[in-house]
């Protein structure tokens, strides 16, 4: 019985040591694990020119503009502190709309973000259309104002 207890404590100790090592590794590589930067982080950090990176935030209400006859789309992304203008040429995901979260990949030059890819991020709330509308009507809506039910 003694040997088994010793084995139990040895395995527990080894497991805790692995957990601690893993925590240290993850903390050391935190910058690499982060999937995107917020507009504030991008403005404040010194970035190399032409460095590819991802920018994440909310699409500012009323900022989406499509020039007629041109595939270029411009919009602002904000973290409610800093706002960064984005230029993008390509196909937007179905979930892209004003007030929604997005992650754009590209580079940041002269205060502007030039995106080569735009991905939509969705939140953890799931509900039917009727409930979402009722919540908005009663003023209990907590999400983005313009995230209207999809009309596809």
């Amino acid at each position: 019985m003694k040997r088994k207890n010793k084995r139990l404590s040895m395995i527990s100790a080894a497991f805790l040591a692995i957990c601690a090592a893993m925590a240290l590794i993850l903390a050391a590589f935190e910058d690499n694990i982060v999937f995107f930067y917020s507009p504030t982080e991008i403005i404040n950090n010194e970035l190399q020119a032409n460095q590819r990176l991802r920018l994440g935030g909310l699409v500012e209400e009323g900022s989406v503009q499509r020039a007629t006859g041109s595939p270029i789309i411009t919009f602002n992304v904000t973290d409610l502190i800093t706002t960064v203008p984005i230029t993008f040429k390509g196909i937007l995901p179905d979930l892209f709309r004003e007030g929604q979260g997005i992650v754009a990949e590209g580079n940041f030059r002269g205060g502007k973000f030039f995106a080569t890819e735009v991905l939509a991020k969705h939140d953890e709330n799931y509900m039917p259309k009727e409930i979402a509308e009722a919540l908005k009507k009663s003023g209990k809506w907590k999400g983005a104002e313009n995230a209207l039910p999809q009309t596809k």
């Binding site: 979930l95 969705h122 799931y126 509900m127 039917p128 259309k129 995230a147 039910p149």
Partner: peptide, 10 residues
């Protein structure tokens, strides 16, 4: 029902 944002993909 379909989701208010994600429609039937939910």
């Amino acid at each position: 029902p379909p989701d208010y944002q994600q429609s039937d993909t939910v």
